[in-house]
Design a protein around this nucleic acid. Structure first.
Lengths: 231, 231
DNA sequence: AAGTGGTCTAGACCACACC
DNA sequence: GTGTGGTCTAGACCACTTC
C-alpha cells in the first residue's frame, strides 16, 4: 500500500496539535495503534514520528502508561563545535595561528583536578593565539595528557594547531563543556588586543577517550564574539 | 529470528571502528546490505544505527555514493534551555522573581529590527529579576509582541514569570539564540549586586510562532554563572 | 496479568546521485 | 540506467510499568 503520510508530515501534525493546544500539556495522547489507524499508516511510522519528539523533550513516553504532552517542554539548542580553523574560515576570513608557549611541566592542581589525574602529573602545555584575518580571535590555553596521545610529542604545532591535530587523531572523545564570561586579565588583554577587564566569552572543555583524560582547553574569545544557534 | 545485535550495540561497534581508525576518515564503509549480512540483522536495524551517526555528523551518507567517515567530525553539544524557575530549582535552591518594570511602549529599533517588526511598534516591556535563594541570579529584559499573544496582557506577572507563561502558552516556537559576554552596566550591576564592568554571561533570544514574532529576551546572568553541558 | 511503547524482520518501492 | 540510502509495511516478540 502506498503511504498517504510520511513520518515527517505526521510529526508536523503532532507538533501542530500540541502547539495549538488541541493536545494539552499533561494530557494522554492516543496510543500508537490508534494513531496508525487515524493516519492510515503502519505503527512503525507513528513510532518514528513520536520517537524524535520524545528525544526532543516535547512528549514523555512510558510503556504501559502511554504518551503525554510534556508539562515543561525543555527547549534544546544544538551548538556545533567545529575545528577552530573552520569556524574562522566559515566567517569568510583566513585563519592562522601562532604558538606562544610550548612546554612540558607539572600541571596545576586546577587542571589535574578537572581531568581526574594525579596532582603534579607532567603534561604538555600549549598557548596558542588564533587569528581571524589579522585580528586576534581566540586565545587557547591547553593541557594535554602525553600518556593518552604520545604521538603528540612529535607534532610541529606551527604546521597544525593542537586543536586540529587532536580532532583528527583523537576523534570521538567524550567531554564536558562549560560556557561563561570573564574579565580579561593583563595577559589575555595584551594577547587578544583587548582592554584589561573587558568581558571575554570563555569556553572550558575537558575531553576523555573512554576513561582516559586527553586534554583540557580554555578558550578565551576576543571581545565582541558571539556564539549563535537556532532553536 | 531472534536478533543477536541491537541497533545500539551495532552503533557502538561502528563508533569503535571509526575511533580506532579501522575505518579511516574519508573512506567508504560497507553498504547497508553488507553490514546487515555481517551482523546477521535486517537492513532496517543497520539503517537505524547509521542514521543517528549521520545526524550527529560522524559519517556522511549519500544515495548511490554510499557512506563515508566524515573528514571533519563536527562535535555537537546540546544545551537544554529549561524554564528559568526549573533551572534555578535544579541547582538545589528556591526560585523567586520580582517584576521591576512593566509597561507598553514603542519598542526601540534594535528590538523591532531583530524581530522583523515595524519600527515604533508598541510592545509589552518587562524587566524581571530572578533570584536563586536570596542571591540575584538573572536579570531579564523582555519585549513581547502583544499581537502574537494578546492573552499576555491579562497575566499577573507577580504570580508567574513572563518566561514561564510564554513557555506554557506559546510553546513550540522557533527562534535564534546567541551567547556572549558583556561588561555590567550601572543598571545591571546595581540590579544583580555586581560591580560595574564585571563580566556577565549574556543570552539573547528571539522567538517566533511560524513567521509571527513573539518575544525577544535579553538575559544577563549574575557573575560566576556557568552554562554546562557534555559532549 | 495486561497494556503500552521499543525493537526487529523480510520485503518492497522510491528518490537521488552518479554514470 | 543503475546502485545506494530513505522510507514504509504488516507482523511479531519483548520490556517495562502499572494494575
Amino acid at each position: 500500500m502506498k503511504p498517504n503520510h510520511s513520518w515527517q508530515s505526521i510529526q508536523a501534525e503532532i507538533i501542530r496539535r500540541i502547539s495549538e493546544r488541541i493536545w494539552v500539556p499533561g494530557e494522554l495522547v492516543p496510543k500508537e495503534t490508534d494513531l496508525a489507524k487515524e493516519f492510515a499508516v503502519s505503527r512503525g511510522t507513528i513510532n518514528r514520528a513520536m520517537r524524535e519528539l520524545a528525544n526532543a523533550g516535547l512528549i514523555d513516553r512510558k510503556r504501559k502508561a502511554g504518551t503525554r504532552v510534556a508539562l515543561n517542554p525543555v527547549r534544546k539548542a544544538t551548538l556545533d563545535i567545529p575545528v577552530i580553523r573552520l569556524d574562522v574560515e566559515n566567517r569568510g576570513v583566513s585563519h592562522k595561528h601562532m604558538v606562544l608557549m610550548q612546554k612540558i611541566v607539572p600541571a596545576p592542581a586546577l587542571i589535574t583536578g578537572k581531568l581526574g589525574l594525579a596532582t603534579g602529573t607532567r603534561m604538555l602545555h600549549l598557548r596558542t593565539l588564533h587569528f581571524a584575518g589579522n585580528q586576534p580571535f581566540l586565545y587557547e590555553k591547553r593541557w594535554v595528557n602525553q600518556t593518552a596521545v604520545p604521538d603528540i610529542l612529535d607534532v610541529d604545532f606551527s604546521q597544525i594547531s593542537a586543536n586540529e591535530w587532536l580532532v583528527q587523531n583523537a576523534p570521538l572523545t567524550t567531554g564536558d563543556i562549560s560556557f561563561s564570561a570573564t574579565n580579561a586579565s593583563k595577559d589575555e588583554a595584551e594577547t587578544l588586543g583587548a582592554k584589561i577587564g573587558e568581558a571575554l566569552f570563555l569556553i572550558d572543555r575537558s575531553t576523555w577517550i573512554g576513561t582516559m583524560a586527553v586534554t583540557n582547553a580554555r578558550l578565551a574569545y576576543a571581545p565582541g564574539f558571539q556564539m549563535h544557534t537556532s532553536l
